[in-house]
């Protein structure tokens, strides 16, 4: 039985970033720290970040436990977030949610296109948006977020 169960959603990109994330860890000291929790499954994601003099994110890391979708999303988000400021990231967060829900490609989110496969799995969308919720909370100066 050679069913290609890994097609669409579980592409190599997602599996690689989940298994070998490049931005996992915790910045200490950090300018902002926020923790997101998905109450439905208990998964969590903590974001720590430091701002540069220009107000943009100079460094960012995530820590947490979760499924491959959450971990890969956190890692790819961190890569995307570096060098960007709050207004732009808020816009990207919204676009990412649209991409995940509808499967439609979104400008500026090419590296996150593997998550288009989520459109087929509405119950898993919040796995991918959890790190973004934590990031937005950190940018707001809050310490907690939930992925709803």
């Amino acid at each position: 039985m050679s069913v290609d169960i890994a097609a669409d959603l579980y592409q190599q990109t997602i599996l690689t970033h989940a298994r070998h994330p490049l931005h996992r860890g915790r910045l200490d000291p950090a300018d902002a720290l926020a923790r997101g929790e998905n109450p439905l499954c208990g998964d969590d994601c903590e974001i720590t970040l430091r701002y540069g003099n220009d107000g943009k994110i100079a460094d960012i890391a995530f820590e947490g436990r979760g499924c491959a979708i959450t971990l890969a999303s956190a890692d790819l988000m961190a890569a995307l977030a570096r060098g960007r400021a709050k207004p732009e990231l808020e816009e990207l967060a919204e676009k990412f949610e649209t991409l995940a829900r509808t499967g439609e490609p979104q400008p500026g989110l090419d590296t996150l296109s593997p998550f288009r496969g989520l459109a087929d799995y509405p119950s898993r969308v919040k796995c991918a948006t959890l790190p973004w919720a934590a990031l937005l909370a950190a940018l707001e100066g809050k310490t907690e977020a939930t992925s709803e």
């Binding site: 069913v3 959603l9 499954c41 491959a68």
Partner: peptide, 10 residues
């Protein structure tokens, strides 16, 4: 959840 989603694909 990854297990369940991948099983669902089958």
């Amino acid at each position: 959840h990854d297990i369940a989603t991948l099983l669902d694909r089958a």
